[in-house]
């Protein structure tokens, strides 16, 4: 009962506020000028990003430098966690070794479903990333979806299963580095032809053989997809090292 009273008070406050304040707020009836600009220009218009997906055009074109710095924040976050968990080569080999008593994983139902689902997740994530300039979605969303596949394998089987099949931390980092390098290159290419950093139109072709690719947006999405997916996978692999094993390797006791 004592727990219920605060709950009731909170609920009453929320409903009361909603009831009294909500009608008094002026309803938004017209577009703000900035929003109107984006909506009118993202595909048609003079300052076009050649993409019907307004969010992606804001993300990688109008406010591209913002996203560039966001990506570098993500890069630093991954680098930070890698530094905290850094191991030398010999220690890394130790961390990859399966413990003897390991039997591994969830029930066979989860395991056999995982086998089918992983393929689907990868295909869907590639589709999200590659159609980011046409439909909702994009590099970050696709990359996050991509990272779910290794996470699912880690949960259903083990991190050792992932490493035995060839996806270890180093490879994930290579994937991530390719992505980041690609983003940096695409951002710098306009400088060669006398444009600005991260300029999109008219330097990159808006259409390839009649298929709308929205200039640089598709490249950014693709590379961001790799960078985010690889980065998350590397961190998941590191976090999946059992604490006991990790402390043994580092030689620190309880």
């Amino acid at each position: 009962m004592k727990k219920l009273i605060p709950l009731i008070v909170i609920l009453l406050t929320i409903f009361g506020l909603a009831h009294y304040i909500a009608p008094k707020l002026p309803p938004q009836t017209e577009l703000r000028p900035l929003g109107e600009f984006y909506l009118k220009n993202s595909y048609f218009g003079e300052y076009s990003a050649k993409s019907p997906e307004v969010v992606t055009s804001i993300l990688w074109d109008y406010r591209g430098v913002d996203t560039f710095f966001e990506t570098s924040v993500f890069f630093l976050a991954i680098i930070g966690s890698l530094t905290v968990f850094r191991l030398n080569k010999k220690e890394e080999r130790l961390a990859k070794q399966k413990p003897k008593e390991f039997t591994g994983g969830l029930t066979l139902v989860v395991k056999s479903v995982t086998k089918i689902i992983v393929v689907m997740i990868l295909a869907v994530s590639a589709s999200i990333a590659l159609h980011g300039h046409l439909t909702p979605g994009g590099g970050f969303q696709g990359g996050s979806a991509l990272a779910v596949a290794p996470l699912l394998i880690i949960a259903a089987y083990s991190k050792y299963a992932l490493e035995e099949h060839g996806l270890d931390k180093t490879r994930a980092l290579i994937l991530r580095s390719i992505g980041l390098l690609g983003i940096a290159l695409v951002a710098l290419v306009p400088l060669l032809t006398g444009g600005f950093i991260m300029q999109n139109q008219p330097i990159f072709p808006a259409e390839i053989k009649g298929q709308l690719v929205s200039g640089s947006l598709i490249y950014y999405n693709l590379f961001e997809f790799l960078a985010v997916g690889g980065g998350f996978t590397a961190v998941f692999l590191l976090l999946a090292i059992p604490e006991k094993v990790f402390k043994e390797i580092l030689g620190v006791g309880e």
């Binding site: 056999s112 086998k115 089918i116 992983v118 393929v119 990868l122 295909a123 590639a126 589709s127 590659l130 394998i153 099949h165 996806l167």
Partner: peptide, 19 residues
């Protein structure tokens, strides 16, 4: 074409997982 490219990559990376 894009589908074939990506399916090849996906298939290559999951060829041992699907069982």
């Amino acid at each position: 074409v894009a589908g074939i490219i990506f399916s090849t990559i996906v298939a290559y990376s999951t060829r041992n997982i699907i069982g």
